[in-house]
């Protein structure tokens, strides 16, 4: 089982709960933590489910709802905003046909916004899964999205 194999990497100490949640979520196609998994993690760490849930619901990178295979995060903060002359947010929205915090019907993408991801010197940027795409133009952004979509057909 996926969760068990990840749990085995960690000592049975409560302070590893965030590390464990991040690892479990990363391995999952639908990018979220289910109630079953919360139960298992709580049992392993000898803590309560409510403790695991309190952590899970606090941190933005963790999700309690199923998401798409690829998580797209578009930066909405000032340094990206002032260098974005083509409206990256709208470009991505239009390409995917979804709004923020929504998942495409083929479940390939979930669109999210993010706080600054520390690449302001190469703004505007977006992060897809664990890669940051920098110095975006409209064409470049669409090309990247097409590549992600293409890989899944």
């Amino acid at each position: 089982m996926l969760v068990d194999s990840i749990l085995n990497h960690y000592p049975k100490e409560k302070d590893y709960v965030i590390e464990i949640l991040l690892d479990v979520q990363k391995e999952k196609e639908d990018n979220f933590i289910s109630q079953e998994e919360v139960k298992k993690i709580a049992y392993y760490l000898d803590t309560t489910e409510s403790h695991v849930c309190s952590v899970l619901s606090f941190y933005t990178l963790l999700s309690t709802k199923p998401r798409g295979k690829n998580i797209i995060q578009v930066c909405k903060d000032v340094p990206c905003y002032v260098r974005d002359d083509f409206n990256l947010l709208k470009t991505v929205k239009d390409f995917l046909g979804v709004n923020f915090n929504e998942t495409t019907t083929d479940r390939i993408f979930t669109l999210e916004t993010t706080a600054c991801i520390g690449c302001c010197d190469e703004a505007p940027v977006m992060r897809i899964n664990d890669r940051v795409y920098k110095n975006l133009t409209k064409d470049k952004a669409i090309k990247i999205l097409k590549e992600y979509r293409g890989n899944d057909y």
Partner: peptide, 11 residues
């Protein structure tokens, strides 16, 4: 935990 918009030195 560099998260302040506009900062990227720690990265």
């Amino acid at each position: 935990d560099e998260g302040e918009p506009g900062n990227f030195k720690d990265r």
